[in-house]
Write a protein that binds this DNA or RNA. Structure first.
Lengths: 205, 205
DNA sequence: TTTTGCTTTAACCAAATGGTTAAACCATAA
DNA sequence: TTATGGTTTAACCATTTGGTTAAAGCAAAA
């Protein structure tokens, strides 16, 4: 659990990430973070003056990672559909690696919307979502079906991230059906089904 | 905020639901619940002996409501696709009314999986998901495409519930695109796009 | 070796937290 | 009117919480 080859500060950040993501700002306990990091509680306050300061760092990291991912969209010469395919692959790989990140952000927005808005303004600085822009261009050129791009974006995000968020529920619900969730739910299968959705949503025939 | 025409017990349950759903078991404060209910903190312990007992009641109610919904599937003489359409409508109406319910359950499973498993066993008693059974029957009869029913179920749940969970994020992300989220994101529009997904996933041609 | 400066700790502290208690309140029945 | 029994409260209590402090470790420079 405790990585020996890392500094106290790194151990703290790792532990804080885990504990804050599980319990949120209010639910998390400094003692819990200290124990998880395998260090003294006073050392937390030596490196990060307060709970809020430490949380801030974790939350900011999560926001950066999340919005970086959501806004990557290659502007290569490939057809838009293939670019969306690529986006789906990257997204699913990302959520497989950080399954709790979107829940964490959503939960904390609910509790402290002002903090979120302030921070996101810094991160995004008026940038709009590249994929939506690309889709609208392609639509204007008649390369894809006429669709509601915002709704398409919402659907896509739903398909890519909810399976990881709700894994614990699905695991239980589907087990009753005598299927092994972890076997059924390979990211490969998910990618294929989301790509099917993209295809039927965008492809003209 | 405080409903005058309700007993103290009802006021407490309503307040506890709100506070627990927002902060979780650990993050919630009894004083906060008392204040929200507009009553004395000692009265909480008069009606529900402890924080855990009160939480238990709220969590159980949520589980019941959630699994009741997820397993309703009419066995009328309609074609399966129409039945799935109906299911989509009901689901989206349900999540519009209780947008935080799935997040609440997911979060608490993460923290206390044993409690969840114990409670769900009581609620579900070996029942498997009716929709999946119906789809498999229809598939055997050749009425619909050959699909992975479990994955279809996951996709469907994702499309129906994530938009409500992630509303705060989407609201922000899409505003940059100069669109009014609440106007764009009517449940009507969502229903239509999810039905499109159902159609293209199940319909044979 | 001694000094310097960063790191880590044990022992505290004040405030907040879940929970208790005994008394006050208040409608109804005797 | 006066018991009666459920309801509500203020005043507490023990424990936990975030946070501080002063001293101890400890590696590298002098």
């Amino acid at each position: 659990m405790e990585q020996l080859n890392s500094t106290s500060e790194e151990k703290i950040l790792k532990a804080a990430k885990d504990v804050f993501m599980k319990y949120g700002l209010y639910g998390a306990r400094m003692q819990d973070i200290a124990d998880t990091a395998g260090i003294n509680k006073a050392l937390l306050h030596y490196y990060f003056r307060s709970k809020e300061k430490l949380f801030d760092k974790i939350f900011e990291n999560a926001l950066h990672k999340y919005f970086e991912r959501i806004n990557v969209f290659s502007d290569s010469s490939l057809p838009v559909i293939d670019q969306v395919f690529k986006y789906v692959e990257n997204s699913i790989d990302f959520y497989a690696e950080y399954p709790k990140i979107s829940m964490f952000i959503i939960k904390e927005i609910e509790i402290n919307p002002e903090l979120f808005h302030k921070k996101v303004q810094v991160i995004k600085k008026g940038k709009s979502i590249k994929m939506i822009e690309a889709l609208e261009k392609a639509m204007a050129k008649g390369e894809i079906k006429k669709i509601d791009t915002a709704m398409f974006f919402i659907n896509l995000q739903s398909l890519c991230s909810y399976p990881f968020i709700a894994k614990p529920i699905f695991k239980h619900s589907l087990k009753a059906n005598d299927k092994d969730y972890d076997k059924d739910f390979s990211t490969g299968k998910l990618k294929r089904s989301v790509k099917n959705f993209v295809e039927s949503s965008l492809s003209k025939k």
